[in-house]
Write a protein that binds this DNA or RNA. Structure first.
Lengths: 226, 226
DNA sequence: CGAATGCTTCGACTAAGATCGAAGTATGAA
DNA sequence: TTCATACTTCGATCTTAGTCGAAGCATTCG
């Protein structure tokens, strides 16, 4: 009868507070167990289990069994992008669940957006790459230039491996705190992994915040001048 | 207690089937009355009225009184972008409400995405503008080049007026049928208005589909070669 | 082999909210 | 003024689904 995709199903999955809390926790990028997710949502394990089954059936989550643990994670990049776009709208209307506290500035400075860097630092990184003509817009969203590719490989990122996968290498993702775009896609993920592997940045426990070390700050500023 | 924006509230607003149907109808770009929206959703006027009040309180809709009619519309571009991103996810998981019928190809070819052109034609238009270097990526998403500006003004679009408003002129919007970006923002809206004013294209009644006339097809192909 | 941990399933309770009939308000037309 | 249209508010009903206790699998460890 109606035309177009069914958004009500997805909306109702996101619309329950317990499920929304779990999804927000999973935006931190780590795979989490039902027990951990139940704690995040403030509900019992039984209830969490039923929610997780629904989220998985709806295609938002995937699970991986490992011993007697089950690890849940967001199923695709698209899920992260979709959630971030909803967060963007919610934030712009003052719909926040937290009283602005000490954690807030840290989140705005640098945080994980599922698997890549977001916040002020994420936006600065993309700006800098574009200013240096290492990334440009093509028909299919963003693309690495030859210069960009050389730069990326010099940093030790395996470009060939990214190329092989069917995932888009570069994507834009709308930042809810900055209200501008930052870099997502497999390259975005590779950059964040690089920063952490090099010891330039650390993920905070139970938070989406990313804390840069002093050397990390310096390296980041040199790599991505403003 | 939790950090980050409250996505549950927005999700629950979108999550009710009746409200989702109304929002989808409003993605057609026309402002609609409660009576019309009730018909789209298949509910009585009383129920629709209560839903519309909630959507307005949540910031998704605005209303404009005109005589004894009330016209509801999506409140901002952001709402359209958010809904389209959810539709993108839903469509990629086969969550469609319609049995693929004769209307479907028309929608994929060209349709309204709130206030701008989407579908194959929307994507082709952005591709062509980028290939001709009339639009490029800057730090802040897309931007018109000088060449692009001249082109736009030659077509009769009032660039100065677009510039004055606080709305972004160019924006990307992820297309759910093509799964690539097309042009949103005030320029995207201006282009669609132009096509309709020139008689190149018409909006179908009660549908998001856009039908190009023969002269419209020809003009479009010349303006935006592949 | 128990015993313990991690998780799911079942069943019953409860509360939130979607729905509509009926009545009330506002605008416009005759 | 009177009637009609468009919409909102109120109140009652009823379904849906979120919740947790209890019990049941599965896996690991001693």
């Amino acid at each position: 009868m109606k035309e177009g995709p069914d958004i009500a199903l997805i909306g109702s999955l996101i619309g329950d507070p317990a499920r929304a809390n779990m999804l927000t926790a999973l935006m931190g990028g780590r795979a989490l167990t039902p027990t951990e997710l139940a704690a995040h949502a403030g509900i019992t394990l039984q209830t969490a289990s039923s929610h997780l089954a629904k989220l998985e059936a709806g295609g938002l989550l995937t699970q991986r069994k490992q011993g007697r643990h089950r690890y849940y994670a967001l199923s695709e990049d698209e899920v992260g992008l979709m959630l971030e776009s909803i967060m963007g709208f919610a934030a712009s209307h003052g719909l926040t669940r937290h009283q602005p506290g000490p954690k807030d500035p840290a989140l705005r400075k640098a945080r994980v957006c599922y698997n890549h860097l977001a916040g002020d630092y994420g936006v600065r990184m993309l700006d800098s790459l574009v200013a240096a003509r290492q990334i440009v817009l093509t028909g299919e969203d963003l693309a690495l230039t030859d210069a960009g590719r050389a730069r990326v490989e010099a940093l030790g990122i395996d470009y060939a491996a990214l190329k092989k996968s069917r995932r888009p290498i570069c994507r834009t993702c709308l930042d809810w705190s900055e209200r501008r775009s930052h870099l997502a896609g497999s390259l975005g993920e590779a950059f964040l992994t690089l920063f952490i592997d090099k010891g330039w940045a650390n993920r905070e426990q139970n938070s989406r915040a990313i804390r840069f070390t002093d050397t990390g700050e310096k390296a980041f500023s040199e790599l991505f001048p403003q």
